[in-house]
Design a protein around this nucleic acid. Structure first.
Lengths: 134, 134
DNA sequence: ATCACTGTCCTACTACGCTAATACACTTGA
DNA sequence: TCAAGTGTATTAGCGTAGTAGGACAGTGAT
C-alpha cells in the first residue's frame, strides 16, 4: 500500500535526552512547514518509519497522535495520517496566553542569573532573527 | 537553639504540580532577594520548616542544598544554613549560554503558535518591565 | 561527657514518562 | 472473502524524579 519512494530521512538520537517521539514530531513538523510533506499527502506508515528508525511502531504512533491533537494531521482509519490544511487558528489573544509561561520562565532564569532586560534581548535576538527567515 | 520568633510563613501547595522543594526554593529565594532574610542570617532549620509545613525534613534539605549549589546560602556544619553575600558571578558569557535553552524554547513555541517576532516581544515585554522594577 | 540542636547519607516507596509487544478494528484491492 | 495494509488500545517493563524514614556526623552550651 505504501509508495516505495517513501523515504524516511529522519535520524533519531536515542541518547539525547529528548524523547524519540518528540524528535520525530519535530522532524515531521519541519517537513510539513517546509512543504516537503504537502497538505493532503499521507505520512509514511508507523510500521515503515519504525522499521527504518529501528524503534517501535507505537512510538511513531504516539508522535502521530500528538500531531493530530495539534491539528497538523488527521487520522484516516485504515488508511493513515494525512497532512491537514492549516487549521483555523485559535484567537491571537489565546495564543499569546499560551506563550506566557515560557516568557515567564525565560525571565525567571534571567533574574536568577542576574541578567537584565537588555541581556535577555541580546540572547533572544538571534533566535528571533532565525524565526523571521522562515 | 532556634529563635522562637522564627516563623515559617511559607505555604506549600502539594497538588500544584510544582515539586514542594522547588516551591520552597522559590519562597526562600524571594525572602533573600527582598531582604527578609538578610545576608548572614540563619535559615530556619529543616526540622522546624518540615514540622510547620508537615513535610519531611529531607524535602527541606533538598531545597536548602540546591540553594547552596546556587551559591545563595552556605552550609555551616552543625549550625545551619547561612545566607551568603552575593557570590562572585560566573562570566557573563557563561550566563548568557545558560539562558539560551529557554530563549529557544520560547521561540519554538511561538513558531508552533504561528506568532512572529513582534508578537513574542509583545508577550515578553510585561515580564521584562517587571524585571526592571526590582 | 552529655544533650539538644544542626544538615545529610542511604535506602526505599510511589508516581509518572517513555518505550515496547501483542491483539484488535478499520480500509482497500484482488 | 481474504489478504495486506492502516493506526491504536492495552498491558507491561524500565528509568527517573519526588518524597519520606532512620541512622549518622558535626557543633555548642552545660
Amino acid at each position: 500500500m505504501h509508495n516505495e519512494r517513501d523515504n524516511v530521512p529522519y535520524a533519531m538520537n536515542p541518547s539525547s535526552g529528548v524523547p524519540v517521539y518528540r524528535q520525530l514530531m519535530d522532524a515531521v513538523r519541519s517537513d510539513i512547514a517546509s512543504g516537503r510533506r504537502p497538505v493532503g499527502s499521507i505520512l509514511p506508515s508507523v510500521r515503515l518509519v519504525a522499521k527504518e528508525l529501528e524503534i517501535n511502531p507505537m512510538t511513531v504512533s504516539k508522535a502521530y497522535s500528538r500531531l493530530e491533537s495539534e491539528g497538523l494531521v488527521e487520522r484516516l482509519p485504515g488508511r493513515g495520517m494525512r497532512v491537514c490544511a492549516r487549521r483555523t487558528q485559535a484567537p491571537i489573544s489565546d495564543r499569546r496566553k499560551e506563550l506566557e509561561p515560557f516568557a515567564r520562565q525565560l525571565v525567571d532564569h534571567a533574574y536568577r542569573l542576574d541578567l537584565d532586560a537588555s541581556e535577555i534581548r541580546r540572547v533572544l535576538d538571534p533566535f528571533l532573527a532565525e524565526l523571521n527567515h522562515e
